[in-house]
Design a binder for these strands. Structure first.
Lengths: 348, 348
DNA sequence: ATGAAAGCGCTAACAG
DNA sequence: CTGTTAGCGCTTTCAT
């Protein structure tokens, strides 16, 4: 490995001067600086970022005017459209601001999340973005050595951390209202059960599913429908499980004229499941999703959905995080709810 | 931050002894070791991995018998099903072997890839997996300080690195043969143009698209069809562009009785585009994809496709990489082609 | 069995 | 303008 010392020797200066030149400090004679830069190029010198953090416990450094930082993103799943789109958008938003993003998959497992913080984010990142974390704010603070952090879609009581929420409650409510307004009177809900089958899930009454269900409930109650009469089909939020659920609950499904699905992916599985039952969408039954992933426009039929402004979630997450990284002062914690709209398409 | 020194003070020993205990070295009295461990727990001590690499230039350490390594995965896009599924599977395969995976998006941009290696992978990872890299093997070797590396789907001449390929040529060939065998005589190809619109793409005649096209060509030539007569519709490999392309090349499309699409996502866009034109699949026209992503089974109609064994790609990539990490010896470079099969479904 | 010293690559603080 | 010193958290080496 080529070190600054090596470059210094080549250029006939000390390592310190090399450091100054390469960092763009202006207290070096232009002539010397030139020699150093040439030597560095000749030797293919590469900064060893590792050693930076040893000295400063901060990873970010500015070099030649550009900031040079790293953001850690812990996301629950990488193999589904919504989280992977989000990860991609965050990556790109961060890049525009001069930050590199490293993504890690938690699979909604607290132990994984701890490992991620301890082994990676905590060591190499200037800040963290956590999506659907299973850890408490306090634990995140502690494990991360109080690094700047932004939480995505985590609505538990201890909000001592900047948070961005998807409009789960109001979005679900408007979805039901939309279906009702289009004349549907037998609306079912698909996706009542959790992603993980563990008891954590059900104990945590502040999670996304709960909020979406509460939105539905509110809509129904305002419409004068008894919430306990509303058919709810339990399934994990993915296409394969949703399809099976529709087949398993065929009778329930047949009694409905509309189905609101907790995510777009779930809706895809539902549409497929309905096809298996010989039911067509939207003629026999209307289907609505939640998220507004890109593919929802491409599907046949295209999916009517609660389209969350995903680019906004990504942009705000990055902006808030970088603001915290740059500005150490203890600004008050923010809490943002993402925009959304009902995207009316073919399926409902 | 709690350091070994702190733990040592708490336990009444030196930092050195703490290091020995925590690494599982057996030259410490059981009694002392116990005291140290308790002190570490009490203080919530966390190993600062950063400082390891300064000393050893290797990140992986075994602690209490468990390896404790990190794999860097550079992948071209995170917002499409194929790469994101791959990333997820690699993450999970690595985890089973005790490695954490950090994923970074390159967006098929050489500068990004350099930045990724220099700023992250190179510093904190025991090994790298590169998917669809734009860098030469030589450059990867140099930038990464000769770290263990596995290339995914990169079939350029300089294969001085372990590589896993998708069966692009043979897969495409069998797809055309399948369509032909089912009686189609006017087969078109969708996705003839590159992901990036830059000249790099066209100059690089060893890339995936080229190989898939060559597979088609071989099939057609063996079937006695003039390759230059085969309609090829140019589009980027995603649903939105593919849909537009179908509309733009409506005349060409209408002259076909089957369309082979370069990826499943492209096929989704094509099916949608055909719907826009009032054409139904498979009645009016058969559609076939390539990749075998999960959603292809859920789509309506479900997608007949060249199903690549994606879990195998992930597993082999991780296995090969870890083998190289563990075994420094210069074993010969390997080159594996993933399994596949023609998954026959509704669309063709 | 335990620890003191040296050093990994880099930079903040200060000296010349 | 340039260099020296010291130190970041840890491990390797070598005494004790």
């Amino acid at each position: 490995m080529v070190t600054m010392k090596d470059v210094g020797r080549e250029a006939g200066v000390s390592a310190m001067t090399v450091s100054n030149v390469l960092r763009g400090n202006d207290n070096v004679a232009p002539e010397t600086a030139k020699r150093v830069r040439e030597a560095a190029d000749r030797l293919h010198y590469r900064l060893n970022t590792t050693s930076l953090s040893a000295r400063s416990l901060r990873v970010s450094t500015s070099r030649r005017g550009r900031t040079f930082g790293t953001i850690g993103l812990a996301i629950f799943e990488l193999d589904r459209p919504y989280p992977s789109q989000l990860a991609s958008l965050i990556s790109q938003a961060a890049e525009k601001r001069g930050y590199q993003t490293v993504v890690q998959e938690t699979r909604i497992n607290a132990e994984n999340e701890r490992s991620i913080i301890e082994r990676v984010s905590n060591q190499f990142c200037d800040g963290l973005i956590f999506s659907s974390s299973r850890l408490s704010a306090a634990e995140i603070e502690q494990l991360s050595n109080h690094r700047p952090t932004v939480l995505l879609d985590d609505d538990r009581p201890q909000h001592d951390i900047d948070t961005i929420l998807t409009p789960s409650e109001i979005g679900a409510q408007q979805a039901i209202e939309y279906l009702w307004a289009s004349g549907k009177r037998h609306i079912g809900i698909v996706g009542g059960l959790g992603e993980g089958s563990d008891e954590h899930e059900t104990a945590d009454s502040y999670d996304t599913r709960h909020r979406r269900l509460m939105g539905c409930r509110k809509a129904f109650e305002e419409l004068g429908v008894d919430w306990w009469e509303v058919p709810i089909i339990p399934t994990l939020w993915n296409d394969v499980e949703a399809r099976e659920a529709v087949n398993r609950y065929a009778d329930v499904v047949r009694s409905c004229d509309a189905l609101f699905c907790m995510t777009d992916t779930t809706a895809f599985g539902v549409i497929r499941g309905l096809k298996d039952l010989g039911l067509s969408v939207p003629e026999d039954i209307a289907v609505m999703g939640f998220d507004g992933i890109e593919m929802s426009a491409t599907m046949v039929p295209s999916l009517t959905t609660v389209a969350v402004d995903i680019p906004m979630v990504a942009q705000k997450a990055v902006d808030m995080l970088i603001e915290r990284i740059d500005d150490e002062s203890d600004r008050e914690r923010q809490r943002i709810v993402a925009d959304f709209h009902i995207e009316r398409r073919e399926s409902a």
